[in-house]
Amino acid sequence: MDASVREALFDAAALERLAAVADIDTALVVQDFTDPAAAGALADAEALLTGWGCPPLTAEALARMPRLRTVVHAAGSVKHHITAACWERGLTVASAAGANALPVAEYTVAAILFSGKRVLHSARVYREKRSWVSPIDVIGSGGNHQRTVGVVGASRIGRRVIELLRPYDLHVLLHDPYVDDEQAAEMGVRAVSLDALARSSDIVTIHAPELPETRHLFDRARLALLPDGATLINTSRGSLVDTAALTEELLTGRLNAVLDVTDPEVLPASSPLYDLPNVLLTPHVAGSLGNELGRMAHAALDELERYARGVPYADPVRAEDLTRSA
């Protein structure tokens, strides 16, 4: 992982716990598998504890680690570094994706509730007038009573969003090609087609994986299905939304957006999305940051302790699952 990631993830308590479960030099952070200074440690390594910035574990990299049996990722997606060579080698893999899903879901629920309450619009009007504004006038037809929220993707994050929305008086729709009507009903939501979800939702939140078939899932045609005044929330991957088409819609003022990810990431400085009053643009902050990183680190250490005890991982990553997950 990057050295800065190690510093952010592992406080003194986490390092003490790590030293208790593994024979490790906690000061050694490998950022380049070809680094001669790391050659000895890599040659002896049975397990890798990885994080953001881990280089790809190619066949060439794995050749430097003949004793390697497992990889525990102290973050979410492993797609950046786990390669086909890892599965061919028979490595086991675990991640802290479950822990990382929690703050993303919390960010999303906050965005849903703020969107329903028209917080961006209200704050802008109040800032511009700098005097009394009628709450009734500024909210207009907004509010969170029996709004319809469309959740795209019953991923870890999508399912957690659904759980967190249960106390609220909202109608929740779900589109996921791998979830049938009965499974959706068990989650307390209604399964619908993606187009039906787009047409019927006041707020749409995207939690689908980045795959070839999900690129521009919300293209110009599907964005046009969203009702006037609807809000699109994206905390997944920027490529799932056609940025040019969304920008055109947002420039008209017809739609609103809460975007924690974009395509490209970062948007060019000339993008109007930075300044539009109907857009909340954040720099990929929904995931684990600040004091949330410790939860992710300890989730990874939980898995490493399971490996040391010889018991299965609680949250294993399997090759076949990566074809339909982040």
Rank of each mutant, 00 (worst) to 15 (best):
P283S: 01
G253S: 14
R199C: 14
A43F: 00
P36D: 06
L28V: 04
E182K: 09
A12E: 14
Y307F: 15
A244R: 11
A230H: 08
V78G: 05
R67W: 03
A198R: 07
A185L: 13
A19L: 06
A257S: 11
R306D: 11
V29T: 15
S95F: 09
I233Q: 01
G40N: 07
A39Y: 00
L102C: 00
F10I: 13
L170C: 01
A300D: 10
D275N: 14
D275I: 01
A74R: 02
I206M: 12
P312S: 09
E248G: 02
P264G: 08
R147A: 10
N291S: 11
E248N: 03
D315V: 03
V189Y: 02
P272R: 06
R64W: 03
L301M: 11
A101E: 07
H284F: 10
A191D: 03
Y274I: 04
E249T: 00
N100W: 00
D195A: 05
L211G: 07
L28Y: 12
A20W: 00
V109C: 06
R166S: 05
D228C: 12
L15F: 08
H121T: 08
P227G: 08
M1D: 02
N291K: 14
P277A: 13
V125T: 15
P56V: 11
L246I: 00
D169R: 14
A224E: 15
Y313I: 09
A47Q: 01
L276I: 07
K117M: 04
N144E: 07
S200F: 08
A196G: 09
F114K: 13
V317G: 08
L246R: 05
E7P: 00
V204N: 03
R237T: 04
E163A: 12
E248S: 02
A85L: 00
L9S: 09
G238V: 02
V261L: 09
L267K: 10
F33P: 06
I203Y: 08
E163L: 05
H175K: 04
A191Q: 14
V138R: 04
P264K: 11
G143R: 14
L170W: 03
G253I: 10
I82D: 05
A61P: 01
R220E: 12
G310S: 05
P312M: 12
F114W: 03
L276W: 08
D242G: 04
E46D: 14
L322Q: 15
V21I: 14
P277T: 12
A47M: 11
E106C: 04
D23A: 15
T50D: 01
M187E: 06
E210S: 15
A61K: 01
A41H: 06
N100F: 03
S193N: 04
Q31T: 15
L280I: 07
S141C: 07
E163I: 05
R6Y: 05
S95Y: 06
P316Y: 07
E106K: 04
R190N: 07
L217W: 05
A198M: 13
R127C: 10
A299T: 06
G142D: 02
E16M: 05
D202T: 10
V241T: 12
H171M: 07
Y168G: 04
A105S: 07
H284A: 08
A43I: 07
A37W: 02
E265G: 02
L113G: 03
A101R: 09
A101F: 04
L164I: 11
D23G: 10
H216F: 15
K129W: 03
D260H: 02
V266A: 15
A45K: 10
R6E: 09
L68T: 02
